[in-house]
Amino acid sequence: MNNVVEILIGLVPLLDRIKTSIEESTGTIPKASTQLSSVTQATEMATVEILNTLDGMTERIGSAEGGLVSMKNDLGAAAAPVQGKLQEIEKTLAETRQDAMNIAMALQVQDITSQQIAGVTHLIETVRQQLLSVLGQMDKDLEHAPSPGPEAPSGHFDSNAQFNRSTERQDDADAIIQQWQKVNHE
């Protein structure tokens, strides 16, 4: 009997430590969520800046291409000696335009990672809610416990989003659509 009492007496400080630890954790999670959210905002801002720069580049490439065409027209037969050089410039401009396009398309990674981050934020908010529930059971006086806060939205993102250049997922989707259209005679 004495042993049981000793164990129970020993459990009290342990439970206190667990409670303190849970309180600290639940208090830290909102800060983590805010930081993750600011990461998403910052990357979106930076991505838009890059897209603006690419737009400017593409516009200038267009002007250069237009200028080249005008110059060739103006020179007429006199352009013959530099024809090779002009074609090289045209090719370089076309390649640069394509590079700008490729960079823009690669920036889809920002949307995809922001969805992954939203998934993580949702997950840690769920953990926080569960910890608060445990805390509520441990301590009925919740005056000092952190407030539950708003429930994290779950339908605005795809936590399984992936930046995958393979065409496999699109090919699978196409096969399903084809099958669907066949069955439904569309």
């Binding site: 396009m101 398309m105 690669a106 889809q108 990674v109 949307d111 995809i112 969805q115 795809d158 399984n160 989003a161 992936q162 930046f163 995958n164 250049r165 997922r169 699109q170 699978d172 989707a173 399903i176 659509i177 669907w180």
Partner: peptide, 30 residues
């Protein structure tokens, strides 16, 4: 145009009658 590429997702979209479906990341050609 979505990141969701599971079979169930594509079928769900077809059920509400989208005409076609692109999985992100997509290409300009796609």
């Amino acid at each position: 145009v979505t990141t969701r590429g599971n079979k169930e997702d594509v079928i769900e979209a077809m059920k509400v009658r989208v005409n076609n479906y692109i999985v992100k990341p997509f290409t300009a050609q796609g």
